[in-house]
Amino acid sequence: MCAQTSGPDGGAAPGPYDRVWPGRLPFPLAGLHLWTDPEGEPCRTDHGTEPCAVASTTPSQDAADVPGDSTPQHPHSTRELIAAVPGGFGLCVDAGAAGGGRHLTRAQVDGVRGAGPPLGTEVHRDVTSAPEHLDAMLDDVELAALVAGAEDVDAAWLRLPAGPAGLLVDVRGRDREHPPPTAALDAALAAVRSHAPQERVRVVGNVWLTERTHDASASGDRGCQWAIVVCVLVVAVVVAAVQNDWF
């Protein structure tokens, strides 16, 4: 297999077995104003149960539906705008407009944080099932990859502690020592492009995400088991000490 270098989040840097779909947000973020309170913190509103930062297409407090002492900031780029949105927040745009404006969920905001979606090899990452609305796309991705020579395909939603998130598609070869043909990754990415999802997608080869996650969980379980054993021994010693009047 190809040698891999270290990425910025402790994972392997992108290499020959790496393809990215950049995502397609439901509306552009360029040129938006982000509103802050007198302390310089992003103004907050709630969309259902989700906290959101507040933005608007014009520097109008009425359009943003913010208090009178709020100040509009004008980020120079989409990345700068997203970086200013607190972790765990969505983004509400033109909340004072007719119909309530537009909204990005926390997952959508996290999906455009950073330079790209997670690599899948980071040490600290949150791994959950792929969103259900992407099931049809993933069926096509798996079929395309298998036809092009892959042995199996796995997929999961990854989120890093600093916020960046995205869908990881792991195209596998026969085993860890035999990666899939690069044509299988190309076919998988072509299938993703044909669906053009809003979410960012990284197509990788032989990351074996499921096994990595299982190994990490097993290591954590072993740590918990040892902690329980130590606690039981300590309690036993204390009980014996009391019964035998050692103190």
Rank of each mutant, 00 (worst) to 15 (best):
A188R: 08
T36D: 05
A136V: 12
T213D: 10
S77A: 06
R102T: 13
I228S: 06
T71W: 05
G166Y: 14
G90P: 01
L146T: 10
D152I: 13
D140W: 11
P42K: 06
L185M: 09
F89H: 14
D110A: 13
D152S: 02
L189R: 05
G101S: 12
P131T: 06
A12C: 03
C231F: 02
G15A: 12
G68C: 11
L29F: 08
V147C: 15
A84Q: 04
V109Q: 01
L185F: 10
S60I: 10
P117H: 08
D186H: 09
A156D: 00
A83C: 04
V147M: 08
R174E: 15
V192K: 07
L189W: 04
V141L: 06
W21P: 01
S60N: 03
G68T: 15
G114A: 15
P164M: 04
G96Q: 09
L167F: 07
V127K: 03
G173L: 00
P197H: 03
A53F: 06
W226S: 01
L160H: 02
R222L: 13
S60A: 14
V171M: 02
P181S: 04
E39K: 10
P59F: 00
P16F: 15
E122G: 05
D221K: 14
G114L: 01
A150C: 06
R24M: 12
T5D: 14
C231L: 14
R200F: 08
G149L: 05
E211I: 12
V20E: 09
P72N: 07
A184M: 00
A12F: 11
P8M: 10
G166C: 02
S219Q: 08
V204N: 01
A95P: 14
R200S: 11
A162I: 07
N206T: 10
A218H: 15
C43Y: 01
P72W: 07
D186F: 11
Q61T: 15
A241P: 04
H178S: 12
A83L: 09
S77P: 04
A97D: 13
T36H: 06
G205V: 00
D140S: 04
A155R: 02
W157P: 03
A183F: 09
P180V: 10
A95V: 11
L209Q: 01
E151V: 12
